[in-house]
Design a protein around this nucleic acid. Structure first.
Ligand SMILES: [Zn+2]
Ligand SMILES: [Zn+2]
Ligand SMILES: [Zn+2]
Ligand SMILES: [Zn+2]
Lengths: 154, 154
DNA sequence: GATGACTTGATATTCTATAACATTCAGGGC
DNA sequence: GCCCTGAATGTTATAGAATATCAAGTCATC
């Protein structure tokens, strides 16, 4: 995998886990060992990871877990805003800004599979305006843009 | 189902079929009876329809067809731009402007399931600009906005 | 009527996700 | 401590979505 910027990914994972831990304490929701482990596995790649890939990793060195175990943990993590689901890939990715609940908008590189989360207020506003212009109230939106990232073009 | 505007849906279907027929003649692609029938079934509701719903309808009064039959026909129709896939619903919907190939952007009513296709150049431009701003080349994009339509709010 | 490209049929399997019910675990009141 | 309760996890089975593979049919062209 080609990372956009080389970095200490272990630290990257650790930061995400600590942030989640802290948020759960504030919200008084339960960041159980299982949920923590699943979040860790989602962050183990910068690429989106499928539920069954998580399942395989989670099952290493122990009795194989069943799908509901993974899906329930993912549901919790999505609900809390620590993970986003990428609809076009049936896959999951850690959120880059878990402190503020939001719908993620994504760029997906078709070469290296890296994903960039865009949290641009302006983009969100344009989308909401488009909904209103078409007579719809706005609830949420999925935006997934496929393209080739800077790294892969060079 | 609540239609946004009451209309003669049979005529609506017929128009879509004729448009497809004409485009295929121009492109010299094969609008076979099966493909025609699948497009007709996709248009049979204004709501998105799943591949297996198409399969069930297609199988009525005859030997049950197999999934690849439906998926191949849908692939063709998508390729030609007569049908769009709604990622967030694993479902398919007829394109409102088949004459011009494009990526569809959609509003989806969470109450009545009606879908509105938005083909607004400005929206497309904003999305493409956002991709560029994040260092990505643009290939295509999925935009699916959930909300409640005008009818359902009244 | 043989050739080859495309389309459809048929069988099996893979991948994704959820339903339903049992068991375990954490915390609060007694 | 013990019981109660609700949440979390375990377990089994099934549903839902999509594809791989190979066989058979169709159709235009040589
Ligand atoms: Zn996010
Ligand atoms: Zn890339
Ligand atoms: Zn369209
Ligand atoms: Zn509606």
């Amino acid at each position: 995998m080609v990372l956009k910027h080389k970095h200490d990914h272990d630290a990257c994972i650790e930061t995400a886990l600590e942030a989640a831990q802290k948020i759960c304490e504030e919200r008084e929701t339960r960041f159980t060992p299982l949920r923590r482990r699943v979040l860790e596995l989602v962050w183990s790649k910068h690429e989106p990871i499928t539920a069954y890939e998580v399942l395989d990793l989670l099952s290493e060195g122990q009795k194989r877990v069943a799908p509901p175990t993974v899906y329930r943990a993912l549901d919790f993590l999505i609900e809390e805003g620590f993970v986003h689901r990428i609809e076009s890939l049936n896959a999951f990715v850690g959120c880059s800004d878990p402190a503020h609940k939001h719908q993620g908008h994504f760029m997906i590189c078709t070469k290296c599979s890296n994903v960039t989360e865009m949290n641009e207020r302006s983009l969100h506003d344009v989308i909401e305006a488009a909904a209103k212009a078409n007579g719809y109230s706005y609830e949420n939106s999925i935006l997934e843009i496929a393209g080739i990232c800077e790294n892969c073009r060079n």
